[in-house]
């Protein structure tokens, strides 16, 4: 069971699924510290230059990427490969950013991420406008001091989006930024403790966001879920890619018509892919006209 107070993050993940369904990519240790503490993440010995924290029970993993879009992209890819993260996982890039207007300390969701260098745009994430405002973000190569455009300025989001969007659907890729500097409070060397405070002060909203993200990835888990008995059969008999797709589709229809039965009840004799598919097809078709589909 998840730790007390974090029950809202628990998921019904089937046994054939990767345990990590929320992945954080954060540039600085100071930005990550409040999340590590809040989610009770433990350091994982990766024997690499990347630092990873994780909490298996909650299904959260976090990597510290270092500063810059390339590092963020590399860290995202490393985390994916390290835990073999599945495509129903949510990916979150959290950090501090400059903003064209006051005040310092507000949390935003970046709903448009643009790189002037690459001249490309991402529109990441399901928008949570009821919780925090959405705005545009420019990923720049060095810290911004002019704040000429009505946007957030960071150094990682573009690299993160570029890689994460190849792993999960666009609606599960999130960029959240806390304003750390503005024209009135221009960038200066921010002490780690100040960065931690900026994140800590937004933990309440972050908690609400996580709860909503959890609901979305549960929907994806449910949609992509493959029943354990399907996996069991596929592991014991050879299925071509096409047959496997067919089998999984038929299984769903069969299960709808026979919610209380298991595949064992069908007593396959030869146990090859063709036979299984044909038994399912016949079974579904036999009584199709008399079922209530609505």
């Amino acid at each position: 069971m998840p730790s007390e107070g974090l029950n809202f993050l628990s998921k019904d993940v089937s046994s054939n699924s990767c345990i990590y369904s929320t992945c954080w990519v954060i540039a600085l240790r100071a930005e990550a510290a409040p999340i590590i503490k809040f989610l009770k993440l433990k350091n994982v010995n990766t024997q690499s230059n990347f630092t990873i924290y994780a909490n298996e029970e909650l299904g959260h993993a976090l990597i510290i990427s270092g500063v810059g879009a390339i590092k963020s992209a590399a860290a995202t890819a490393f985390l994916k490969a390290y835990f073999n993260i599945k495509n129903h996982a949510a990916w979150i890039n959290l950090g501090i950013a400059g903003y064209y207007t006051e005040p310092v300390g507000n949390l935003y969701q970046a709903i448009k991420v643009f790189s002037p260098v690459h001249q490309r745009t991402f529109f990441p994430g399901f928008r949570f406008s009821k919780i925090i405002p959405g705005t545009s973000l420019l990923t720049v190569n060095k810290a911004e001091t002019n704040y000429n455009n009505p946007v957030l300025y960071d150094m990682e989001a573009f690299g993160f989006c570029e890689v994460a969007s190849a792993f999960s659907c666009n609606e599960l890729i999130f960029v959240f930024k806390v304003v750390s500097d503005t024209p009135e409070n221009p960038i200066k060397k921010l002490k780690s403790s100040i960065i931690e405070d900026l994140i800590n002060e937004n933990l309440r909203d972050l908690k609400e966001l996580l709860s909503e993200i959890n609901k979305l990835s549960e929907l994806e888990i449910e949609r992509l879920k493959i029943s354990d008995e399907v996996i069991e059969i596929e592991n014991s008999i050879h299925f071509s890619k096409t047959n496997s797709f067919k089998f999984r589709q038929l299984y769903k229809k069969w299960k709808f018509a026979n919610p209380r039965k298991t595949l064992k009840d069908l007593h396959f004799s030869k146990k090859n892919a063709k036979e299984i598919i044909s038994v399912l097809e016949n079974n579904i078709s036999s009584n199709k006209k008399n079922r209530d589909y609505i």
Partner: peptide, 12 residues
Amino acid sequence: NLHNTTGLFAFP
């Protein structure tokens, strides 16, 4: 594929 076999998509 978008739906997790609602009744409509359960029909063969």
